[in-house]
Design a protein around this nucleic acid. Structure first.
Length: 872
RNA sequence: GGGCAGAUGGUGAAAUUGGCAAACACGUAGCGUUCAGAACGCUAUGGGAGUAAUCCUUUGAGGGUUCAAGUCCCUCUCUGCCCACCA
């Protein structure tokens, strides 16, 4: 009587077996080559594991299992990125401490992951909310601070008018609050920033060193957004026409710099535009005749929400600064200055030279306000166009070309003119980045406290020191450089007077208990209300001081977690000094293969590369790049093709699937559902195909057709083809075709009368990474039958079988005979058949004779091992 | 507006990179097994014509290169994701 396949009966047994033997434990400094496979550790939400997680984790699980079988010392770790908003919001609603909620959720996630049979090294499980963990997050932040890469600055933040709280950029969708849907506006607030822009060039350049999918590299490049151009200085002076024409001009000594990527169009710059926030406006406001109107406009622009301001369909608005003019340094002509909110203070210099003939935005603005438009570049101008500087306008042309109307530069190509004109007007070559410094403060409870203390006394002291240093430098200029180096103040303390680091021995600065998790009306963190915690002693002077109450963003903990797994292996509470991990870092870094979602390409991936580079500069880690290889998976959509969400009610609960079909089935299905990098809708019916496949495997194993003695050359060839295909497909993440190859092989076994044991055993080995439970069970049954050993080796520690190229070769193939490109006949032929033989064979076929009917043959094309095409 | 990825049966898709389009599954239909159902097994299944052998036709649309195009080139349409007044 054949036993029925009941996954539930096997899974618990083998899970316990694997855990007891710790077969997935990574060993530090093993003599084997190492493989570090990484997946993005999840945020343990209340909804439990998403089927999308399973897709990514199964994929890397398969890869690391294959590596393990190939003889690598494998590290495949897991942990929890547990700080974050949903947990905090839940706490706000229910009053339950986020710590408790987090524990509850991670327990669920852990149970679910174990039920799916992922080969994680559970001894290295980490959680970003563990104080022993965030001690290091804080430590790294302090290094940033000490090296002058963290600074506090008043910047506009997104403020939700109805929730009355500050929002992170990610929480603002189309200018509206992600949670309540209400409008947001910009408010100035002091924030900590990390100077990621200082690393922009290296983050860009080092992309050449890593093996990321091309689209990932492109996205990182675009996000960093380097554009090369020039900064050109424009003099500002009182206008001849609008002030008293008899007064001497110029009488204000001011200038404004503009960044441009197109210095070749400078002769066409017919006006200038300043961002409303540009500081020059207040500096020269006495010279501006219509200052009231201008200030009104600026106020309106500031009040306008981000949403309104960046709405592209809105018409551009602006106000001219009357009474003053800028001087175009190329033409020496006066041009009007405008203020308009289509120019951003945060990019470039906050001022532009407007070239309406060669920039669509400038053109739209010029059209509206009747400003001068002067064509200076044409793609292919005629000689007369170059020579006779006419005022014709041929429409906005944003490309490069040949210069006209540009004095001595007429006839020059854009590329050369960029350099020449920049030189001509004394501009500087410069690069600008879209990348902004990273806003690192959150006015929230559930995050890592920023381990800094503010001391009024020390601030005064620092001020005095700074003054003293300056005076000293003036008197003894030669010695001042060295004396600065000896100064007791770190870069961070100089940059942020009064801010003092919490000494390393006092880390971590733990989150205090609070009663209310809701941010205050003033937009301050709930920590600000914990007076006892806030008031502290200054670690430097011992005087009264107050703690920073902002916490870190949820990206902080995930920026270095791949190192934490290594540290955890060396000491379970990560309490050793950083230098003690050097050997383990040298052994395990970089991560060999990192798989994750495309949605993390710009933020998380960039942030963690940045942190790693900084730690590399400190000498703490040995590799300048954290991840050798990065791939990405597609989303699993809900049935019907929409994103899975609670509100749509189309969320698939993996527990239910595991209970109904077993872990192997859901693993196999998620690999089989479609191309790994593509978004695929969930299809419940699709599961049954994979379930049937595993049942068939089980039935074959129990049908007593597996025999030790028998031989089957066809099946053997099929096996080796399958081994080749599956092995190669795993490397290219073509899991769908790998599963299909396994199915084809099993269908062949199903047809076979007898299956040689050796063949079946090898099949189980290549099945094992995909379906670890059934493979282990059937493997054990074979071992017991053959070797009579109870204490057998797990299938997952067996050797990955090598295919034999010779066995795959076929002696015969089906020669396709085409006439004029159409398939007309097929015939079995020897693999090494020559063109002549093939021609003869084809032309002698009755069917072909009939079709040819004595017509003249023009040409015959023969493709070895494939086809022959007779052209008439 | 920019970047990236796509478009192949009723559905998810495959196609050794220019060489038999639709592998492998799902679904559907018929048959078998069964008291019956589930499960399982067998057969068929892109469309059209034909009793049939067989023939014609088919990869978003149109054009081109080639003995041969889903694959390469040009023009266009549509879809998804990300970014976006970035000078």
């Amino acid at each position: 009587m054949v036993k029925k396949f009941q996954p539930r009966l096997l899974e618990g047994k083998w899970r316990r077996f694997w855990e007891k033997r710790k077969i997935y434990a990574a060993k530090d400094f093993s003599r084997k080559p190492k493989f570090y496979g990484l997946i993005e550790f999840p945020y343990p939400s209340g909804e439990g594991l998403h089927v999308g997680h399973i897709r990514s984790y199964t994929a890397m699980d398969i890869i690391s299992r294959k590596r393990r079988m190939e003889g690598y010392n494998v590290l495949y770790p897991i942990g929890w990125d547990a700080f974050g908003l949903p947990t905090e919001n839940y706490a706000v609603r229910t009053g339950i401490h986020p710590k408790i909620v987090t524990k509850r959720n991670t327990d669920i996630f852990r149970r679910q992951m174990k039920s799916l049979g992922f080969g994680f090294d559970w001894d290295r499980e980490i959680a970003t909310t563990d104080p022993a963990y965030y001690k290091w997050t804080q430590w790294i932040f302090l290094q940033f601070f000490k090296h002058g890469l963290a600074y506090k600055k008043k910047i506009p933040i997104n403020w939700c008018l109805s929730c009355k709280i500050g929002l992170a950029n990610e929480e603002v969708v189309n200018g509206r609050c992600e949670r309540c849907g209400g409008p947001t506006e910009k408010r100035d607030k002091e924030q900590w920033l990390l100077a990621i822009t200082k690393y922009a060039d290296r983050l860009l350049q080092d992309l050449d060193k890593v093996d990321y999918l091309e689209k990932i590299k492109i996205q990182q490049k675009n996000w960093i957004g380097k554009s090369e151009g020039a900064v050109i200085k424009f003099e500002i002076r009182n206008s001849k026409s609008e002030t008293n024409p008899k007064s001497k001009i110029p009488n204000i000594k001011q200038s404004v710099e503009a960044f441009t990527t197109r210095p070749d169009t400078l002769f066409g710059a017919t006006y200038m535009v300043l961002a409303p926030e540009h500081e020059i406006i207040s500096q020269i406001k006495n010279e501006i005749l219509n200052i009231k109107e201008v200030e009104n406009y600026i106020k309106k622009a500031e009040r306008g929400s981000e949403f309104q301001r960046t709405d592209l369909t809105r018409e551009k608005t602006g106000v001219e600064l009357k009474g003053i003019k800028a001087v175009n340094p190329a033409t020496r002509k006066e041009i009007p200055i405008w203020v308009a909110d289509y120019v951003l203070a945060s990019y470039g210099t906050g001022a532009i030279m407007a070239v309406p003939s060669h920039d669509a935005r400038d053109f739209a603005f010029a059209k509206r306000y009747g400003l001068l438009i002067k064509q200076v570049v044409l793609p292919q101008p005629s000689k007369s166009q170059i020579q006779n500087s006419k005022r014709d306008f041929f429409g906005v042309y944003e490309g490069e070309g040949v210069l006209i109307n540009s004095g001595k530069f007429n006839g020059m190509f854009s590329e050369k003119a960029k350099r020449e004109i920049t030189k001509f007007v004394g501009g500087k070559k410069e690069s600008q980045y879209h990348l902004r410094d990273w806003i690192f403060s959150r006015q929230r409870y559930w995050g890592e406290p920023i381990p800094l203390v503010f001391c009024e006394q020390c601030k005064k002291q620092a001020q005095t020191n700074a003054d003293y240093t300056q005076i000293y430098a003036e008197i003894f200029p030669r010695e001042s450089a060295s004396s600065q180096r000896e100064s007791a103040l770190s870069e961070g303390e100089k940059l942020n007077p009064g801010w003092i680091v919490v000494p390393e021995k006092n880390l971590p600065v733990e989150l205090p208990e609070v009663k209310k998790y809701k941010p205050t009306d003033t937009g301050e963190s709930p920590l600000a209300a914990v007076t006892k915690w806030v008031q502290t002693k200054c670690p430097k002077c011992g005087g009264p001081a107050r703690r920073e109450t902002d916490t870190m963003p949820n990206w902080a903990g995930s920026s270095w977690y791949f190192l934490a797994y290594i540290m955890k292996g060396a000491s379970s509470n990560y309490q050793l000094p950083i230098t003690n991990y050097a050997k383990a870092f040298r052994y395990w870094t970089p991560v060999d293969w990192y798989n994750g979602g495309m949605e993390h390409t710009t933020l998380h991936l960039l942030y963690s590369r940045f942190w790693n580079k900084f730690l590399y500069d400190l000498g703490a880690v040995p590799e300048p790049e954290p991840y050798k290889k990065r791939t990405s998976h597609g989303m699993v959509l809900g049935e019907g093709g929409l994103k899975m969400s609670k509100s749509k009610g189309n969320v698939v609960n993996p527990d239910y699937i595991v209970r109904q079909f077993g872990a192997d089935t859901i693993r196999l299905y998620e690999m089989f559902m479609g191309p790994f990098d593509q978004a695929i809708p969930w299809d419940h019916k699709g599961l049954s195909g994979c379930s049937r496949f595993l049942n068939r495997v089980w039935d074959i194993a129990h049908s007593r057709r597996i025999s030790r003695e028998s031989k089957n050359a066809d099946l053997e060839r099929a096996l080796h083809q399958t081994m080749k295909k599956v092995g190669e497909d795993i490397e290219t993440m073509s899991f769908n075709t790998a599963v299909s190859a396994l199915m084809i092989f099993v269908n062949k076994c199903h047809e076979a009368k007898e299956i040689p044991l050796k063949i079946w055993e090898n099949f189980l080995l290549i099945l094992a990474p995909f379906a670890p439970f059934i493979a282990e069970e059937l493997h054990q049954q074979i071992k017991d039958k053959r070797l009579k050993i109870k204490d057998f080796k797990s299938v997952h520690l067996e050797k990955w079988p090598k295919y034999n190229e010779e066995l795959i070769k076929k002696d015969f193939f089906e020669l396709v005979i085409q006439v004029d490109g159409k398939v007309r006949d097929k015939v079995l032929a020897r693999a090494e058949i020559s063109q002549k033989e093939a021609e003869q064979l084809s032309l002698n076929r009755d069917k072909i004779k009939q079709i040819l009917g004595g017509k003249k043959i023009k040409k015959i094309i023969f493709v070895p091992k494939r086809l022959i095409n007779i052209v008439l």
